[in-house]
Amino acid sequence: MNSCRIAICLLVGSGLVMGAAGHGARAAESGSKPVLSTEATEALARAESGVALATAKKALWTTAASALAQAQEAAKHQDNAAVMKYAAVAAEQASLGMAQADGPLTSQH
């Protein structure tokens, strides 16, 4: 009987501790989580738009696609510097791909 009481007390006690710890972790998470900056958000939007345009023009480079994927992954981790870096690469490579599609053909004659 005593052992049963002890087991119930332990169960309740551990539940309280885990609940408190979880609440504390969530609070710490929401409190310390940095928000993606306006510049990074805009850079990511520009990159997504550029890659979408290059895709529509059938002129997307794999380098643009992978840089955009890296920027989106960095955004998930709220890493402003990485988002800015990869988004700039994606936008530039998408733009180069589109310019290439309008370029002259090679050695046709």
């Binding site: 002129a59 480079w61 794999t62 180069l96 370029g103 053909l105 090679t106 050695s107 046709q108």
Partner: peptide
């Protein structure tokens, strides 16, 4: 199809013809 063959593409800036003609 001809346009595709002679059009440069990708970061390496090659067309199909860059290798198989030139």
């Amino acid at each position: 199809g001809r346009h595709f063959f002679y059009q440069r593409r990708g970061q390496l800036n090659f067309s199909c013809a860059s290798c198989h003609v030139d």
